[in-house]
Design a protein around this nucleic acid. Structure first.
Length: 950
RNA sequence: GCAGGGGUGGCAGAGCUUGGCCAAAUGCGACGGGCUUAGGACCCGUUUCCAUAGCGGAUGCGAGAGUUCAAAUCUCUCCCCCUGCACCA
């Protein structure tokens, strides 16, 4: 049995003592692996093994490839989560405390968790402990957190440069806002951790007849302005007439909606108007096709606090509007002046197509969609909603405008161009709305609104020159897995203004407005470079870390002595820092999760391009999926989080690493399951026992099966090396863990006994297992009689000359022959209930191989038949012709045969005993031309004829 | 809605870039058999349907259409699922 706990401790101690993972500048090619900052508000669970484990595999692999590898680690504490976390502790949040209990955090520590800095420090230590126990080859001397003061100095320097280069801008920005606390709110600040979802909608205005005032309507579909027949208000709601700053004329909207919109617009109330009073007014729609005068009706579905509290009615394209009008008609309203207009035609709609719709209904599409959803004007709102969605979907997907001037335009196209026209004409403007399915509340209890923040600072990732430089840099980078390349490309094109400061949270103060703090993704875009000097400047006084110091170290600006003079840092340290950065940072691999492509990783590229010289731009980015727990997402609510330390204790670090890293390719989510884990453990045990029992094994001359094992081994080395290069760790694991055991078992069952061969096999296997299962590898390496660290050994190189398709094919032939023979025997037993006393295996003649190989390359039987006449090597021409004809049926599927009759015969002959033991019967191998069996002629190359002798 | 990625056998998951060797690797499960006092482990076989002294045939890789002598693999259309969408780490 493998004592995982024992070998983990043994080797972790040994590694640490020998300091073999501490990156020092050396003669060898450097290679730096960095993985995303873990966030310091919880200890690790086994999901973390994915990113950090993959990074460690690469680090260990590169080390064995002869690189001088540096794998540093730091921690993230910037932003609001830690603050929110502390807040929840102050409130004694039960869920949170339960979650922390899951991680076995002692009560006395929990009590201190009301202090954000304590929290960050505490989990930083926990995270380091977990990573150490997982066996990561990290150089811990370089660790820092994103709230360490010396790191802030570095970030200030970075933003200074961004500003110098004109990449920071200011402008308006919509945010979720708590009107009570006067604060921007994010997910962490809301009840139930809801993210406020903000969407842009369009406000259209309609002139009121006889007044210098407008009615405002909020809509997603400004293109339907041509078909507006009337407006709807909530009869019992309160409306207001008001002045909106920057707009000519006064506006009508509901009082409730003004309450929310006042955070986006400067609204001055002039007077209040009852809903009933609104009904007296009429509006003008200059764009109307069938009617320009719009009456105002009560609408049953109008919500006073949504949008502007007034809805424009387009009965032809909105089931709600149609239904409301029909209901009014039923109540005796005179709606005779309503003249709907059809604006969009759906010809190829998946759902409407082929349905028997009455032509008149097609002029009123909304009615058609109501019918399709089995609804009518009196249906419940849910049904009307379904009809609306269906119509919206079909029209935006397949709809074409039939309005003059826009004919043939797709609906989304028309929407955008009409919106722009109306805004340019001053008849419309944008508004932001919260689109969460239910209202979002702040933790303080008040309802969240949207506020437009003035003078918000942004990083302008939309800057064209910058974008182009990034695209250029990107084209030279290596992205793994290749599948995520497209995502990067579109992310680079898409990323635009990004708000960069926040009012709250831990982190670095924004240098150009000290009231704000740099937002937490923006302060983590170039921190990896800081690892190259963090261990060297730990003792330097903070106020000495001036911009010119960083400028010299990272950009080579000025000279060391002058910088020493102006900063007071000793010149030796400055030189060392500069040297360290330019040594380590040339060859880097960045590891993070897939979902960070659209923010962190893209910002990482942009900022490197903006700040550093080209030589230090990113070289490689590796992304990976998440870890699922028995098919489900690990989440607090499901309670299926396995803390990393628990996982290591229960399963062993190596099996855990292997299962998480190897159960999926980089792109997919991997799965933690007990089954898979046990499967891996069993294989490890098997390997362990082989090494343990190596002494007792015999030796003999090399037989086919020995050559076979060598062939398999070297093929494995070749393929695994290739897979390692692309970090196809699933393939590596399958080959090393699962296939190896199958091969070894086969070797022994075939009578392999050569301890030298097995030792060679295990030696190479153990080295290749090092990146994935470092402790076990190290242990087995020593059991095999080595004194060095496997971690520092050379990765094996394949000996191509012993990779033999022929030998592997011949071995496969043995297996398939056994299977076939058994099958025949079974069949006969069933049928005639008798057991054979001998199996005769007849190997096909060489002339059959000749023919088969010719057909495989030429794919033409007639020329061959022609040549047959003159052939001297083939004596029985009739048989040969028949053979050709039988093959020609599937002329395109014929495979060529690599081995001769002699090779096939020798292979089977050598294995006669093995075949006999497998078939539990006497086996005799003979050649076709020497056989007296009447089944001899059925033999085909690579498919011996089987004759059962009774 | 936009962007990116997927949909393969009971399940998980290869293969699809470079069409034929793919009824489709491998792992798990299920069933039958062996081994065993028994269980576990291990070994053998079956696991779409039909046929059968093995080497054969049919159907088949989200749906539909197309290209081709030949498609899980290429093209088009559609449906469905997952992830991200910004101040949130």
């Amino acid at each position: 049995m493998i004592d995982y706990e024992g070998i983990e401790k043994k080797w972790q101690d040994a590694w640490r003592e020998a300091r073999i993972f501490e990156g020092e500048i050396g003669g060898k090619e450097p290679y730096m692996v960095t993985a995303a900052f873990p966030y310091a508000n919880a200890p690790q669970h086994i999901g973390h093994l994915r990113t950090y484990g993959t990074a460690d595999v690469l680090a260990r692999y590169k080390r064995m490839q002869g690189y001088n590898v540096l794998y540093p680690m730091g921690f993230h504490a910037t932003g609001t989560p830690v603050l929110a976390f502390a807040k929840r502790f102050i409130e004694k949040d039960k869920d949170l405390i339960a979650e922390m209990k899951l991680f076995h955090i002692p009560d006395e520590d929990l009590e201190k968790m009301t202090d954000p800095v304590y929290i960050a420090n505490y989990f930083t230590k926990e995270l380091e402990k977990g990573m150490h126990k997982a066996g990561y080859s990290i150089d811990w001397r370089r660790k820092f957190t994103s709230i360490d003061p010396f790191f802030s100095k570095f970030i200030e320097w970075q933003f200074g440069i961004l500003n110098e280069k004109g990449l920071l801008t200011q402008g308006k920005h919509p945010v979720g806002w708590c009107p009570n606390e006067n604060n921007a709110v994010g997910m962490h600040d809301t009840k139930h951790d809801l993210e406020p979802e903000i969407e842009k909608e369009t406000v259209l205005r309609f002139k009121v007849e006889g007044e210098e005032a407008y009615v405002l309507c909020v809509t997603y579909r400004p293109e339907t302005i041509f078909g507006v027949t009337n407006l709807f208000v909530a009869e019992n709601a309160q409306y207001i007439l008001c002045k909106i700053k920057g707009m000519d004329g006064n506006c009508y909207l509901s009082k409730a909606s003004a309450e929310a919109l006042k955070h986006q617009f400067d609204i001055t109330i002039i007077n209040e108007v009852a809903g009933k009073e609104m009904l007296q007014k009429r509006c003008i729609n200059k764009k109307g096709i069938n009617q320009m005068i719009l009456p105002i009706f009560p609408g049953f579905f109008v919500k006073e606090d949504l949008g502007s509290g007034i809805v424009m009615s387009v009965p032809s394209h909105a089931p709600f509007d149609y239904a409301a009008l029909q209901r009014l008609k039923g109540q005796g309203y005179d709606i005779s002046m309503v003249k709907p207009a059809k604006l969009i035609e759906v010809k190829a709609g998946k759902i409407t197509e082929g349905k028997d719709l009455v032509p008149s209904e097609l002029d009123m599409p909304a009615l058609a969609y109501l019918k399709l959803t089995n609804a009518d004007e009196n249906s419940l709102e849910d049904l009307l909603e379904a009809a609306t969605k269906l119509q919206y979907k079909e029209e935006s997907h397949w709809g074409r405008m039939i309005v003059k001037g826009y004919e043939g335009m797709s609906e989304p196209e028309a929407r955008e161009s009409i919106r722009k026209e109306l805004i340019a004409a001053g008849e419309a403007f944008d508004v932001y709305t919260l689109v969460n399915s239910s209202p979002v509340f702040c933790r303080c209890g008040s309802r969240i609104v949207i506020k437009t923040v003035e003078n918000q600072w942004f990083i302008n990732y939309g800057n064209q020159a910058w974008k182009e430089a990034v695209q250029n840099a990107y084209s030279k980078m290596r992205i793994l897995p290749e599948k995520s390349k497209n995502a990067f490309e579109s992310a680079i094109g898409w990323i635009d203004l990004r708000a960069v400061v926040r009012a709250q949270g831990l982190g670095t103060k924004f240098p150009f407005d000290k009231d704000y703090i740099i937002e937490s993704l923006s302060d983590s875009t170039i921190y990896m470079s800081f690892y190259t000097i963090s261990n060297l400047i730990r003792e330097v006084e903070l106020d000495k870390l001036k911009p010119e110091f960083f400028g010299y170290v990272f950009l080579g600006k000025g000279n060391a002595d002058k910088v020493a003079e102006s900063t007071g840092i000793d010149p030796e340290t400055i030189r060392k820092c500069s040297e360290s950065f330019s040594y380590w940072y040339k060859n880097t691999s960045r590891h993070s999760a897939l979902e960070l492509i659209f923010n962190h990783l893209t910002m990482y590229i942009f900022n490197h391009v903006a700040i550093f010289d080209e030589a230090y731009w990113p070289k490689q980015i590796v992304t990976n999926g998440m870890v699922l727990m028995e098919g489900e997402k690990m989440s607090k609510s499901l309670g299926n989080i396995v803390p990393l330390l628990d996982g290591i204790r229960n399963y062993g670090a190596d099996p855990l690493r292997a299962v998480v890293i190897s159960s999926a390719d980089l792109f997919s989510d991997s799965e933690f399951s007990n089954e898979a884990l046990n499967g891996i453990k069993e294989r490890f045990e098997y390997m362990f026992s082989i090494v343990q029992n190596l002494e007792g094994m015999g030796s003999s001359g090399l037989k086919q099966i020995d050559y076979w094992l060598y062939s398999k081994l070297n093929r494995k080395i070749r393929d695994s090396t290739a897979s390692m290069e692309t970090l196809s760790l699933r393939d590596v694991a399958t080959s090393l863990i699962y296939d190896s055991v199958i091969e070894l078992r086969r070797y022994f069952s075939r009578g392999g006994v050569n301890s030298i061969v097995v030792k060679d096999y295990m030696t190479n296997l153990v080295l290749m297992l090092q990146p994935m299962a470092p402790h076990l590898s190290e242990e087995l390496w020593h059991m095999l009689g080595n004194d060095s660290f496997a971690s520092l050994e050379k990765w094996p190189t394949p000996d191509e000359s012993v990779i033999s398709d022929i030998i592997e094919d011949l071995e496969a032939l043995l297996e398939s022959t056994i299977v076939d023979a058994k099958q025949v025997s079974e069949l006969m037993k069933k049928k005639e209930n008798r057991e054979p006393r001998e199996f005769r295996l007849i190997v096909a003649s060489d002339w059959k191989r000749e023919i088969q190989n010719r057909l495989a390359t030429e794919r033409n039987s007639s020329t061959l038949l022609q040549e047959l006449k003159g052939s001297e090597s083939i004596t029985n021409k009739e048989t040969a012709a028949k053979y050709i004809l039988s093959l020609s049926k599937k002329i395109n599927e014929i495979k060529s045969i690599q081995f001769s009759q002699k090779e096939e015969y020798d292979s089977l002959k050598e294995a006669e005993d093995y075949l006999g033991s497998q078939l539990k019967c006497k086996v005799l191998v003979e050649k076709e031309e020497e056989s007296k069996s009447n089944r001899a002629s059925r033999a085909m190359p690579g498919k011996p004829s089987i004759d059962l002798i009774y």
